Amino acid sequence: MLLSVVQAHAQDRGPPPALNVPVRCHIGADCFVQNYVDVDPGSGMQDFACGRLTYDGHKGVDFRLTDLAAMRRGVTVVAAAAGTVTRTRDGVADVSIRQSGRAPEGKEAGNAVVIDHGNGWETQYSHLLQGSVTVRPGDRVEAGRPLGRIGLSGNTEFPHVDFGVRRAGQGIDPYTGRVIGTTAQDSPALPAPALPACNSDGGIPIGALWSDQARRTLVYRPSALLGAGLARETPKADTARDGGYGQPLPAGPGPLGVWVELMGGRRGDAVTVEAIGPNGQRLHRLTGTVPRPLAVLFINADIRPPNADPWPTGVYRVMVTLRHEGETVLQEERRVELR
C-alpha cells in the first residue's frame, strides 16, 4: 500500500513531528478508530492496549465513519503535521471490495496523499473519496490543511481513512512510537515504555507520537455503537450501512424491524437491545452474548405489533447496552420518529 519509500540515511535521525488528529469529525460520536496498528510481531493480532481492534499485519490507524451516508455528506481529512506533499493519487472509484472482490492492482491504497515532514518522517492518508484530493506534489502544507475527504477507494470494506506513519521507509505505530513488528526488546524507533497492561484505562503511552490535544481526543475505546434504528422491513446490514434506514418512517400497518451495529465486541460480552414505543411500552427485548471477538456485529429482529394493530405515530427509542465481565461499557439510545 506504500506510495513511496524513503531510504534510510544517517541524517534521518531527527525528532518526529507531533501528530494532530487527521480527520475533522467527532471521535467517539460520528467517527471511530476501527483498527489500530497490529503490535503483535507474530501471527497473532493485538492493538496497543492489548485489545483486538486490529487485524494481523495491519500497519495503520483506520478512522471510520458510521455509514456511507456520512461519507456522502463529506468528512474532511487534514494534514496531521506540517510538511511537503510528495505523492498523490486520485481517480480510483469508491467501491467496497464486498462488491468488487478486490482493489485495482497496485492501487490498494486507493486515492491517497503522502506528506514528507523532514528527517525521514512521512505520513500517508489512504482510501480517500474519488475526486476529493485538493493538494499536489510540491505543495507546502501546514497542520490542519485539508487534503481530501474520507472515502471507500482501494482495498476497503467501509468508509475510512487509513493513516500511516513511516520513518526512513519503516512503518511506525503512532500510539507507541515503535517500528511496526518490533517489541520493546528490539531496536525501537524511539525510546518507548513496555506495552500497556491489558486493563488499559484508555491512556496513550508516553512514547506516542500524538500531540497533547490528540492524546486527549484519541483515548482508547474498545467498543462503540455505530448505528441503531428501526425499519419498515426485516433490517438488512447492507441497507443500514448505506444509510438506507433514515427517518421519519411511515406509521400504520406492516412489518417493523429493529437493528443495531456494534464495533469491537469482545467474546462473552452481553448485549441487550430494547425497542420502546411512543407511550413508553416495551415492544421488544433481545439479549445475547458475543460468541467471539468481532470487528463489527450487526443485530436485527422483527417486531410484531400488539394485536396486529397499526403502528402509532410518535417517537420510538432503540436502547442498546453492552456489558463486559459484568461492567457496563456502553449504554446508548437512538430515536426514530414514525409519522
Rank of each mutant, 00 (worst) to 15 (best):
Y36R: 01
Y36I: 09
V37D: 03
V37T: 10
V39W: 01
D40E: 10
P41V: 00
P41E: 00
P41M: 00
P41R: 00
G42D: 01
S43W: 07
G44V: 04
G44S: 05
M45R: 11
Q46N: 05
Q46T: 13
D47C: 01
F48I: 11
F48Y: 15
A49Y: 03
G51V: 03
G51I: 01
G51W: 00
G51F: 00
T54W: 01
Y55M: 04
D56E: 12
G57Q: 07
H58G: 13
H58V: 14
H58E: 10
K59P: 13
G60Q: 03
V61H: 09
V61W: 05
D62R: 04
D62H: 02
F63M: 04
R64L: 14
R64D: 12
L65F: 12
T66A: 12
T66H: 11
T66V: 12
L68M: 14
A69V: 09
A69F: 10
A70T: 14
M71R: 11
R72W: 15
R72F: 13
R72A: 15
R72E: 15
R73C: 14
V75H: 07
T76G: 03
V77Q: 02
V78R: 04
A79Q: 07
A79P: 05
A79D: 07
A80K: 01
A81Q: 09
G83F: 13
T84D: 03
T84Q: 13
V85C: 08
T88L: 05
R89E: 06
R89K: 12
D90L: 09
D90R: 09
G91R: 07
G91T: 07
V92A: 13
A93G: 13
D94K: 07
D94S: 13
D94C: 12
V95H: 00
S96K: 02
S96L: 06
I97M: 03
I97L: 02
I97P: 02
R98P: 08
R98C: 13
Q99L: 13
Q99E: 15
S100Q: 05
S100G: 11
G101Y: 05
G101P: 03
G101R: 05
R102S: 15
R102H: 15
A103D: 06
A103Q: 04
P104H: 08
P104A: 10
E105T: 15
E105D: 15
G106I: 04
K107Y: 15
K107Q: 15
E108N: 13
N111R: 10
N111H: 13
A112K: 04
V113K: 00
I115R: 00
I115C: 05
I115D: 06
D116E: 11
D116P: 08
H117I: 14
G118E: 07
N119C: 14
